Amino acid sequence: MERRDFIRLSTVGLGTTLITPTLALAKAVKQPTVSDIYYTKESPGRWKDKIAGHLPSIGIEKAGTKITIRVVTSHEMKGYEHYIVKHVLLDQNYKFIEEHLFNPDKDKAAISTFTLDNYSGALYALSMCNKHDLWLNAANV
């Protein structure tokens, strides 16, 4: 075998050794889907019987340039045993606007109020349950 052929074959072998496992690993790793991150009414995943108590509802009231957003999750608050941990408000690009944390010893209902100025477009509300994961709903302002 000539030296040039040896170098060429060695380079190809090394490349194959490095690339093949990476390609196999990329195919084996499951890419996350929407229901791996949060649940929705249309995609409740394993919690299809939990939609009514976990999906946040979004109420919108406008007064001039002030917009009041009311997020309600009709979930019972059973102390630290089972409760809504927080509500998170996101803008149309899924960027954080504000959140409200609940105290399961004091809060009897999962209700949050947020005030925005001059906002228009889609809004998203997340509701996080300590047992049944994260739920997302949307509304337009």
Rank of each mutant, 00 (worst) to 15 (best):
L25A: 08
D49W: 08
V12M: 09
F102L: 05
T40L: 04
P21M: 02
A110S: 12
R70D: 06
Q31N: 08
E42N: 14
D5M: 14
I7H: 05
G59Q: 14
L134K: 08
K78R: 09
F6P: 03
E98D: 14
L18D: 00
A24I: 03
Q31S: 06
P104Q: 12
S127K: 05
P21V: 01
L25N: 05
I97S: 11
R4A: 08
T65Q: 03
A110G: 07
L14D: 05
I69L: 12
A52D: 07
V71P: 01
I37T: 15
L23K: 00
K27C: 00
S74L: 14
T115D: 08
V12I: 15
E99C: 06
N118S: 10
P44E: 09
G59C: 06
Y119V: 02
V88D: 00
L116V: 13
E81F: 09
K78T: 07
S35D: 12
F96P: 02
N130W: 04
D49Y: 10
G59S: 12
F6H: 10
N130F: 06
S112H: 02
I37R: 15
R46H: 01
V71Q: 04
L116A: 10
E81N: 15
D107T: 13
T22F: 02
F96Y: 09
N140K: 10
S120N: 14
D133A: 12
T40H: 01
T68K: 14
P56C: 12
D49H: 11
T33Y: 01
C129H: 01
